[in-house]
């Protein structure tokens, strides 16, 4: 997992397979990075994700709660069609916005 801070927003480049086995470490890493960099905004990039199941939804909703709990915002970007289907099915896009590019996701979080 690669992270960077862009305009005060933490950008997380997720990699590999987002299943129950993988999410625990990822969740802790994201929370650590949010705290360490004092970021209120979060962007999750799915460009490097080959597989995702409902564990990924739980990861997003969990981060949504922790980010909004600190008055921050979050957005998703670079979502492939199979992942998009799971997002649409779950209704998660009603609370978290989805963007083509990292730049527009960062902008959306920043402007809010």
């Amino acid at each position: 997992m690669q992270t960077s801070v862009v305009n005060g927003v933490l950008v997380v480049h997720l990699e590999g397979e987002l299943d129950h086995h993988a999410v625990e470490t990822i969740r802790n890493d994201i929370e650590d990075q949010l705290a360490k960099n004092h970021c209120r905004g979060l962007v999750l990039s799915f460009r490097g994700i080959d597989f995702m199941d409902s564990s990924g939804l739980g990861l997003i909703l969990g981060r949504y709660r922790s980010v909004t709990g600190r008055n921050g915002k979050m957005a998703l970007c670079a979502v492939s069609p199979p992942l998009r289907r799971i997002f649409e099915l779950s209704g998660i896009l009603k609370v978290v916005s989805m963007h083509e590019t990292e730049e527009s996701a960062v902008r959306a979080v920043k402007e809010a």
Binding site: V23, L61, L89, S90
Partner: peptide, 18 residues
């Protein structure tokens, strides 16, 4: 959809729906 018995484990309750 969205029923989970383990919300504290960050489950979303979408597995069976999927």
């Amino acid at each position: 959809p969205m029923f989970t018995s383990r919300p504290e484990l960050e489950r979303s309750g979408m597995g069976i729906t999927i």
